[in-house]
Write a protein that binds this DNA or RNA. Structure first.
Length: 818
RNA sequence: GCUCGGGUGGCGAAAUGGCAGACGCAGGGGACUUAAAAUCCCCAGGGGGAGACCCCAUCCGGGUUCGAGUCCCGGCCCGAGCACCA
């Protein structure tokens, strides 16, 4: 035995970090790569706490994939950057009474150190930060592209307001009625905001989700987006107002089949027709109700189990199917934002309408009968089933048909008679991008008394964020930027007259909605993204990130990409060909949180074990796409594995070591491992890839095999997980000069992945009673003879053998009668 | 309520419908050592049996099948997303 010097992670890792830096190992040639592979991971927000173990888990997983792809012959571009604008940074700065512009560079420096230390294959020449004017210049440019296309507009309306963060929140940032960031209950406020017309793209955003050629994504993410876009099919139906001249109320319903059961109508309190429909006698009650609804915050307005309230307008409308006059009410359970802001109420078959009708003693008519009732059975609750064997009743000529058939038939009838048409509705709302905050890119608009809202000319970008000393938000609803008089007053770009800058900054999600376009072009200061570079590298080949961004960041990125595509600036409309959501790491079975005090600080572990061991442990502790449980005790396993590999490398690297005969079973194990590890890496199943490597090492140790050819491939297969370690081993093996990541991934011989002998499980009446070992190609008769010769099996074969099931190379099953 | 995941030893987890528990952690026993650590070897789902072996076991209840952790039906529990969306 050869004495092996122990493996020292800190020395090895420092050595290779330096060498990669010196030799530009991680920097692909962006202009000449012939097999480019854009390997993207979600860039972090550079917090003061430093990299979280969750970040590291995600980045390591993405990095393993990138390193593997590189070894299979791709030029891999695996950039990293910093999502440093936003309320996170700003609130933290306020808390510690510092300026975000001072804090962010410190945090970025710390993150850079940690990211370098973890051994990510990052091309630092292309690093970016969203707070850098050379970046947000182009964020503003993106805004202008949307503005030019009529997709950015200003709207006065009710918005979600967080009284603690003192800012407007998008619907996406309101979680269960509370601010996503601080948990404070959200209120309603009326403000003028900038919006992006993402709703114009709802249909395409939804349709592409099913197009595997454009996007191969995690199912969970696709589902979340579908949910969010919320497509529903139904009909728009017009109800003429009785004695109302030409007035008509248009409603949207997903249940046109229940039209005969519509016994009243409900308008949102904000509906524009309300004033005209309200009769003199009802005016006072209606006005009071509307005032009350307006004061209510947007969120509690949408709490579903609240008691239904409403007021009669005094007017009636005509049900086009029955000709009956039905009362028109207003109620806050109808929302102005969805559909037409008005509904036909079918209390018999809608839970909310049923509750409302019960409260106000409005008529309830059954138009669908379930299997156990008929037209006259009273409804104790709304009957909402569509798919079961219900039949139409009280619906004239539609009686007896199913709701589904009737839905189509009534829609056809509505269209023929001019009462309405089949339509599709989406639940998606337009994206409010205005933030009355400081720490973001100013929205590039100038207001002029004579010209109105004027976009800042592109050659005057960026509109730099002024270095305000007091950047704290206040209650006014006006951005802190308005306090800088010199910045605020600016000549109008059109007429040269006095103008004022837009003082809102844009949503952080706009910064991150296009950053992947910027990475390959960070060295161009005169364009957001270079067409040539973009053509070579995009769309992104693989994107890995957290599913918490399933509907926000990922949907916005798709939208912005689609808009730029429509503007002729990109030749693809989906930015991420493949997206995989990684799982979450918990600690000792519990969610990590500061309050629990169980947050894993990666630095400590890397100090103790080295980055390679830590990476390997993270990839081994559970399936990458599901996450896993971090337990300190588990780290020693991967470390012991690396030590064993080190020993084998030491043996194989010895001057006396020679390539030689390899025992056949070891040869088979070797090729099986080569096949398995490649497949598992491709599928991001790192835990089982590592298990396969451990098995190989166990086999090699058992039979004292350290054949240099075998060990070289072992090191190559370990390289994606433990890059510094693998480089060092590679150098010691003297295989070739240069990085192991420029060596070719070991293929395998399919013929050698199959063993010569196989173990056949033998079952009798469904129970495994033994095994027989036979040559791989053994036929049924041979196996049967062997099985019957085995006493342990034979004793169960006493009765008449009625049937034998034979699966070649796998198992034999006897069915014995008795 | 709707839509997705998921439920397997002491723990993290593996298993194209074909020997359940690979791989690893923790544990027990042994070797080496004055001793400990490290390392190496052996054992290890539960129960029964002196033993060859036998029975039970993948959340629960049914079903399909020669054979089910895996497929189907019904239920329970956990996690995530959406939710007065007509």
């Amino acid at each position: 035995m050869i004495e092996s010097p122990t493996y020292s992670p800190s020395e090895v890792e420092a050595k290779w970090r330096a060498r990669w830096q010196e030799q530009g190992t991680n920097q692909p040639d962006l202009d000449r790569a012939e097999r480019p592979f854009y390997n993207l991971m979600m860039f972090p927000y550079p917090s003061a706490e430093g990299l979280h173990v969750g970040n590291l888990f995600a980045f390591t997983g993405a990095d393993c994939y990138g390193r593997y792809k590189r070894m299979t012959g791709y030029q891999v571009f695996e950039p990293i950057g910093f999502d440093a604008f936003g309320i996170h940074s700003e609130n933290y700065a306020i808390k510690v009474e510092k300026h975000p512009a001072d804090l962010i560079p410190q945090n970025i420096a710390n993150f850079t150190r940690q990211l370098t230390r973890m051994g990510g294959m990052f091309p630092w020449r292309n690093v970016l930060s969203t707070t850098d004017p050379s970046y947000y210049k182009w964020t503003q440019w993106v805004f202008l592209q949307l503005y030019k296309r009529g997709l950015a507009y200003k709207k006065h309306g009710a918005v979600n307001w967080c009284p603690s963060c003192k800012t407007v929140l998008s619907n996406e940032q309101v979680i269960a009625g509370a601010c996503e960031r601080c948990g404070t209950a959200v209120e309603q406020r009326a403000l003028e905001q900038w919006y992006f017309r993402i709703t114009d793209y709802a249909g395409r955003l939804l349709a592409n989700l099913d197009d595997r050629t454009k996007m191969d994504w995690s199912d969970t993410t696709v589902m979340a987006q579908k949910n969010w876009i919320g497509r529903s099919e139904g009909a728009e139906i017009t109800f003429r107002v009785a004695q109302g001249g030409t007035d008509a109320i248009s409603v949207y319903t997903t249940r046109p089949d229940t039209l005969f059961g519509a016994t009243f109508m409900v308008l949102a309190p904000e509906h524009p027709l309300v004033a005209r429909l309200t009769t003199a006698g009802q005016r006072a009650a209606v006005d009071a109700y509307r005032a009350q609804a307006a004061a209510q915050d947007l969120v509690s307005r949408k709490v579903g189990d609240k008691e239904k309230t409403g007021v009669f307008t005094g007017s009636f409308a005509v049900n086009p199917a029955t000709g009956t006059e039905i009362p028109v009410w207003i109620a806050d359970y109808v929302l102005m934002e969805y559909g037409t802001g008005a509904i036909m109420a079918v209390p018999g078959h809608d839970e909310r309408d049923f509750a409302f009708a019960t409260t106000y003693a409005l008529p309830i008519v059954r138009v669908v009968a379930g299997p156990n009732d008929d037209a006259t059975t009273l409804l104790a609750e709304a009957y909402t089933d569509v798919d079961t064997d219900g039949r139409m009743v009280n619906s004239a000529r539609f009686d007896g048909t199913t709701p589904l058939e009737t839905k189509a038939a009534i829609t056809r009838w509505l269209e023929a008679e001019g009462h309405g048409k089949g339509t599709v509705q989406y639940r998606l709302y337009d994206w409010c991008i205005s933030r009355q905050r400081y720490w973001g890119p100013p929205i590039p608009i100038i207001y002029c008394d004579s010209c109105g809202a004027v976009p800042v000319p592109e050659d005057q970008l960026p509109v730099e964020l002024p270095p305000l000393e007091n950047f704290r938000p206040d209650d006014s609803g006006i951005s802190p930027l308005a306090r800088d008089e010199e910045w605020y007053h600016v000549p109008c770009p059109e007429c040269g007259g006095p103008g004022r800058r837009e003082t809102d900054v844009s949503d952080t999600f706009l910064d991150s909605a296009w950053y992947f376009l910027r990475y390959p072009s960070t060295d161009f200061s005169d364009r957001a993204f270079d067409p040539e570079r973009t053509r070579r590298w995009l769309p992104v080949a693989s994107y890995i990130g957290g599913n918490e961004h399933a509907v926000l960041h990922l949907l916005y990125s798709r939208f912005i990409t689609m808009v730029l595509h429509d503007a002729g600036l990109l030749d693809f409309e989906e930015p991420f060909l493949k997206f995989r959501a990684h799982g979450l790491i918990v600690k000792d079975g519990a969610k990590m949180s500061k309050s629990r005090g169980n947050v894993v600080i990666p630095d400590q572990y890397i100090d103790q074990w080295g980055a390679d061991t830590f990476r390997m442990y993270l990839m081994f502790l559970g399936p990458f796409q599901e996450g896993g449980d971090f337990r300190d005790a588990g780290i020693s396993g991967p470390r012991r594995f690396l030590d064993k590999v080190w020993d084998l490398v030491t043996l194989a690297g010895h001057p006396d070591a020679r390539d030689g005969e390899i025992r056949h079973d070891v040869l088979v194990k070797w090729h099986q491992t080569r096949k398995k590890v490649a497949e598992e890496l491709e599928g991001l199943r790192y835990n089982t890839a590592i298990a396969a490597l451990m098995e190989l090492v166990n086999t090699l140790r058992e039979c004292n095999c350290a054949e240099p050819g075998v060990i070289r491939t072992l090191v190559q297969m370990t390289a994606p997980f433990a890059p510094h370690f693998a480089e060092e081993c590679w150098e010691r093996l003297g295989g070739s000069s240069g990085s192991i990541f420029d060596s070719a991934w070991p293929g395998y011989d399919p013929a050698l992945t199959i063993e010569d002998t196989v173990v056949i499980a033998v079952q009798v009446n469904g129970k495994t009673r033994g095994t027989v070992t036979v040559p791989r190609e053994a036929e049924e008769s041979v196996v049967r003879k062997a099985a019957e010769a085995d006493p342990a099996i034979a004793r169960h074969l006493a009765g008449e053998i009625r049937k034998v099931i034979w699966v070649k190379g796998r198992m034999m099953s006897f069915v014995v009668g008795g």
